[in-house]
């Protein structure tokens, strides 16, 4: 792994990624800004400082595995993968276009660096459990990570998977819920309340850590704690803001799956410049 980024470097990276995400979505004319922006700080820390990976050899056997369960926020992952050199930056401009390497939802056979195809919600944690079981069976120290949305945990399969991870005491598994509180129809608590989420995962025999999902130091510490915790899988419940970083997108359900127009893009980019 490259050298660890410090707090300021991580923030700079995340701001850069936010700008890329917005530009990609504008070019594509569709896509999901809200969740991409709420999860980008988590993904920035994960790929910069936590995940053992090698962009020059995406299939390196001993890499840690990251399963993106909330597949619709793939623009956030694409911009990171491109930044790490998994593919050329120019590809970002082809998001969602016919023949593109970057499909609207992740396809592992199109995009270098993706572990698995996803997009149908609720399936990633099960996949991560399988990876973690295999890693244990092989006696390797590979760690498995999985990012889910908070609306996504309404899927019953998430709880089947959570039960199995707890049952098998998969301490080589760390999942994250990007708890931005919104889904397409409105507030998660109104659409279908998932709380108390910490109690639920604890009841399923998980180690649960609650953090501010935009504080890169807290995020890094949580991943460290997870890697040191023995006998249970770890769930990081990251309190986040949907659309984080762009004032008019923040906490607005309407920005779940709509791309910005030119005017909105320029306004968003201006805000992200000013934060420097």
């Amino acid at each position: 792994m490259a050298h660890q980024l410090n707090e300021n470097e991580l923030k700079q990276k995340a701001r850069h990624y936010r700008r890329d995400i917005l530009k990609m979505l504008y070019e594509a004319g569709s896509g999901h800004p809200g969740g991409s922006l709420s999860s980008i700080d988590i993904l920035t820390v994960l790929y910069s400082n936590v995940l053992r990976h090698n962009p020059e050899n995406p299939c390196w056997e001993d890499r840690d595995r990251f399963i993106l369960s909330k597949g619709h926020i793939c623009p956030a992952l694409y911009t990171i993968l491109s930044d790490f050199g998994y593919f050329a930056r120019e590809e970002l401009g082809q998001l969602r276009q016919y023949g593109s390497m970057l499909q609207g939802h992740p396809c592992m056979h199109h995009t270098p660096g993706l572990e698995v195809s996803s997009g149908s919600l609720g399936q990633g944690l099960s996949i991560a459990v399988g990876v973690a079981l295999a890693a244990r069976l092989n006696g390797t120290d590979i760690r498995t990570y999985c990012l889910m949305g908070d609306g996504e945990v309404q899927e019953g399969q998430v709880w089947e998977a959570a039960m199995s991870a707890g049952h098998y005491k998969l301490d080589n598994l760390c999942a994250i819920v990007d708890k931005n509180g919104l889904q397409i129809d409105g507030n998660v608590e109104d659409v279908m309340n998932i709380d108390p989420l910490t109690d639920k995962f604890e009841a399923f025999n998980w180690n649960v850590i609650e953090i501010d999902g935009h504080d890169v130091v807290e995020i890094g510490n949580a991943f460290l704690q997870a890697s040191q915790f023995s006998g249970k899988p770890t769930m990081i419940i990251a309190d986040t803001v949907k659309g984080k970083g762009v004032s008019f997108m923040e906490n607005a359900p309407g920005w779940h799956g709509v791309a910005p127009n030119k005017e909105q893009l320029d306004a968003a980019l201006a805000e992200l410049e000013e934060e420097k």
């Binding site: 944690l125 459990v129 990876v131 079981l133 295999a134 092989n138 399969q157 039960m163």
Partner: peptide, 21 residues
């Protein structure tokens, strides 16, 4: 691996195992 009565999870876990060859 005993996974109980949870068909959707079975398929996902199998997928993860397959990803690890």
């Amino acid at each position: 691996f005993s996974l109980g009565i949870a068909e959707q999870n079975h398929i996902g876990v199998a997928a993860g195992l397959a990803l690890m060859n």
